[in-house]
Design a protein around this nucleic acid. Sequence first.
DNA 1: CTATGAGCTAGACCTCGGTCTAGGTCAAGG
DNA 2: CCTTGACCTAGACCGAGGTCTAGCTCATAG
Lengths: 135, 135
Amino acid sequence: MSYEQLSIGQVAERTGLSVHTLRLYEREGLLAGEVRRDSSGRRVYSGWDVEWLANCVKFRASGMPLATIAHLARLVRDGSGNEAERLELLRAHRHHVVAQLAQLQDCLALIDAKVTSYEAHLAAGVGDPWVSPAR
Amino acid sequence: MSYEQLSIGQVAERTGLSVHTLRLYEREGLLAGEVRRDSSGRRVYSGWDVEWLANCVKFRASGMPLATIAHLARLVRDGSGNEAERLELLRAHRHHVVAQLAQLQDCLALIDAKVTSYEAHLAAGVGDPWVSPAR
DNA sequence: CTATGAGCTAGACCTCGGTCTAGGTCAAGG
DNA sequence: CCTTGACCTAGACCGAGGTCTAGCTCATAG
């Protein structure tokens, strides 16, 4: 089984992150497998690194701070024996995500109410649905 | 009908924002009704302002930038005649929120998969479900 | 009369997450 | 040989969104 050998530019392309950001993430300890270097010091990523980074992108998109991802990465890097801690971390983030979902649903309901009322307003010429009371 | 007269501290209490943040929001133009002042220059908020701010909080929680909220506030402040623009702005944000919901769902699926696999791992002692391949 | 507490302004400061620059190394191609 | 382009490091810079400080004005309570 031969591992893919990817340059930072290729990884940037497939993860959607910039090369700058990839180097930042590495400095911040987000990578779960230490990055090897070729003979002239350039980073060599594996396909597995790309998968891990794709997960990082999702974690970021769901509001996980870099420090937390770094924490998780360290646990994974440290190998077996801390699975309970990883699970705990994931569950904590899960709670966070579920809370965000609820908030977004809530906001969506507000928007939909306003949109509906503006549509009615525009169609029928009824009063401004979001007006400050005269004072 | 008598309007409520609220101090900045009371508004902070009921919106969950700090007084600092309330003043920031005002400077940034997020308020849809200009804030009056009492005889000695202190801000006097109405119940309507609090409602508006509660909406702002939801917008913020769903990722709307301050500048966009300020834009919406300006439209509302300017009064009738720009309802179509407000509607457009709300619809744009709605799209944004829906996209975020999808991303969060996606992330939730990832987390749930990992959580499930860690639980199985911990219960049964099977292999580390998130291990870097040996290399 | 004075001390306390809430509010005021202007502006400094902070964190987070990127983004970009300067100045250098290296390999391949014309 | 020389240019081009991708990569390297270290570190500056940036925008967003808050948060806090200094120094002031008031009103109320003791």
